[in-house]
Amino acid sequence: HQVEVDKVTGKIVKDDGWSAENDKTSFDAKVSPVIAGYTASQASSTAVTGLTQDSQDNVQTIVYAPNAETANVSYIDDTTGKTLSAKDLT
């Protein structure tokens, strides 16, 4: 959108109007990056179509939550080699 304004009067002298670059009026969905140890709240963003000069902002938030960690701990007697107890931890 290109507008020319008269610097003396402040009036618009030329307004070419709004047009989409390459006639593209949409945003494609984007895949959420994989981050080791975390899970994204959505696999991808949502595609947006039908954009015009009056379209509202489109904000999409994807939250990453840490994955649960687990471990199995065994307590072993050094002398006898017997397992005294075992615990599953998170």
Results as ranks from 00 to 15, higher is better:
Val3Thr: 12
Val3Leu: 14
Val3Arg: 15
Glu4Leu: 15
Glu4Gly: 01
Asp6Glu: 09
Asp6His: 09
Lys7Val: 07
Val8Asp: 09
Thr9Glu: 05
Gly10Arg: 11
Gly10His: 07
Gly10Phe: 08
Lys11Trp: 09
Lys11Cys: 08
Ile12Ser: 00
Ile12Gly: 01
Ile12Gln: 04
Val13Gln: 04
Val13Cys: 02
Val13Lys: 05
Val13Ser: 06
Lys14Asn: 09
Asp15Gln: 03
Asp15Leu: 10
Asp15Ser: 03
Asp16Trp: 11
Gly17Ser: 04
Gly17Asp: 05
Gly17His: 06
Trp18Val: 02
Ser19Asn: 13
Ala20His: 08
Glu21His: 07
Glu21Ser: 12
Glu21Ile: 15
Asn22Cys: 08
Asp23Val: 02
Asp23Ile: 05
Lys24Glu: 08
Thr25Asp: 05
Phe27Lys: 05
Asp28Ser: 15
Asp28Tyr: 12
Ala29Asn: 11
Ala29Phe: 10
Ala29Gln: 13
Ala29His: 10
Val31Trp: 08
Val31Lys: 15
Ser32Lys: 12
Ser32Ile: 15
Ser32Glu: 10
Pro33Asn: 12
Pro33Ile: 13
Val34Asp: 07
Val34Ser: 04
Ile35Cys: 01
Ala36His: 12
Ala36Glu: 15
Gly37Gln: 08
Tyr38Phe: 13
Tyr38Met: 10
Tyr38Thr: 01
Thr39Pro: 03
Ala40Leu: 11
Ser41Lys: 13
Ser41Pro: 07
Ser41Leu: 14
Ser41Asp: 07
Ala43Lys: 10
Ala43Ser: 13
Ser44Tyr: 02
Thr46Gln: 15
Thr46Trp: 14
Ala47Phe: 11
Val48Arg: 04
Val48Lys: 07
Val48Ile: 15
Thr49Glu: 13
Gly50Asn: 11
Leu51Lys: 05
Leu51Arg: 09
Leu51Phe: 11
Gln53Glu: 14
Gln53Ala: 13
Asp54Phe: 12
Asp54Tyr: 13
Asp54Cys: 06
Ser55Ala: 08
Ser55Phe: 03
Gln56Ile: 05
Asp57Gly: 01
Asn58Trp: 06
Asn58Ile: 09
Val59Gln: 02
Val59Arg: 04
Thr61Cys: 06
Thr61Phe: 11
Thr61Gly: 05
Ile62Asp: 02
Ile62Met: 04
Ile62Cys: 00
Ile62Glu: 01
Tyr64Ser: 03
Ala65His: 03
Pro66Arg: 12
Asn67Ala: 09
Asn67Arg: 11
Ala68Ile: 15
Ala68Lys: 14
Thr70Lys: 10
Thr70Asn: 10
Thr70Arg: 10
Ala71Arg: 13
Asn72Lys: 14
Val73Arg: 07
Val73Glu: 06
Ser74Cys: 07
Tyr75Thr: 00
Tyr75His: 00
Ile76Asp: 01
Asp77Gln: 08
Asp77Arg: 09
Asp77Cys: 12
Asp78Asn: 10
Gly81Ile: 12
Lys82Leu: 14
Lys82Arg: 15
Thr83Tyr: 02
Thr83Lys: 10
Thr83Arg: 04
Leu84Trp: 02
Leu84Ser: 00
Ser85Trp: 14
Ser85Pro: 00
Ala86Leu: 05
Ala86Met: 11
Lys87Pro: 01
Lys87Cys: 00
Asp88Gln: 04
Leu89Asp: 02
Leu89Tyr: 03
Thr90Ile: 05
Thr90Ala: 06
